[in-house]
Design a protein around this nucleic acid. Structure first.
Lengths: 126, 126
DNA sequence: ATAATACATTACTGTATGGTAATGTTTTGC
DNA sequence: GCAAAACATTACCATACAGTAATGTATTAT
């Protein structure tokens, strides 16, 4: 009934198959429908196609044709733009988790070869 | 079918009424079922009660009895713990949005801060 | 003791939607 | 030109679930 701004986003993310599709696109970059469908052995291809259409309608993925195949690609800005307002309302509660998240990412970046920036410290919040 | 860790959380958040309940608890602190139900004029009270039960089952809220009324309260850690792993997978994409979010929160705090804190400088950390 | 309040619980219902199957539409390969 | 490949689209089905209504259970008030 109530139709919030991020309503569509949350409904999209409610389905595990759709989340997994987003995960695959995030991990492996742009993929065709067939490549994505092959990741779901116990699912029919047209089902994946339907999911992709709804993801596209929500704006979280985009597609470009190449010959007879469509290449789907994550649209991360739409995801962020749609979810950030909601997250912002809980910002005070998320602080700790976000800090940990940020630190983890920092470690990952450090582990990824780049130089030691380990003495960089973030602003303290609260 | 696929049952991820944050699966329950996303299903919980998919419903706008449930999200609004969480919003109310976040904004106004602990509330009784009646107080919450009164915020949904076009909804029957038992419906809200059911939503609260599922929220409780998911661990995102907790309840304490006081006399004949239950006081529901947000359990923010559960929310953060459940959603952070998922967010982490998209961390590279979220960075910008999270930075903006953090800055906004900073501004808000500065704005509603009491007058005398105007010139208080945050600790500079390299 | 009785009634009313404040929820919880159960049973029921209508609808939304994830999934399949079948068909349609381009594009490529031969 | 013909067949197959790669998706999109449509129709259909079965289940999940949000919402209501009715009933149950403590707790407070009188």
């Amino acid at each position: 009934m109530m139709s919030c701004d991020s309503d569509v986003l949350f409904r999209i993310l409610a389905d595990p198959t759709r989340r997994l599709i987003l995960d695959l696109l995030a991990e492996r970059g742009p993929l065709t429908v067939g490549q994505l469908a092959s990741e779901f052995p116990d699912l029919v291809a047209s089902g994946i196609s339907k999911h992709l259409m709804s993801l596209r309608a929500a704006g979280v993925v985009s597609a470009t044709r190449r010959g007879r195949q469509q290449i789907y690609q994550l649209e991360p800005d739409a995801l962020a733009a749609g979810l950030t307002p909601w997250i912002a309302k809980y910002e005070q509660y998320w602080s700790a988790a976000l800090e940990r998240l940020r630190d983890l990412a920092q470690e990952d970046r450090a582990k990824d070869g780049h130089t030691s920036r380990k003495n960089i410290r973030r602003k303290r919040v609260k």
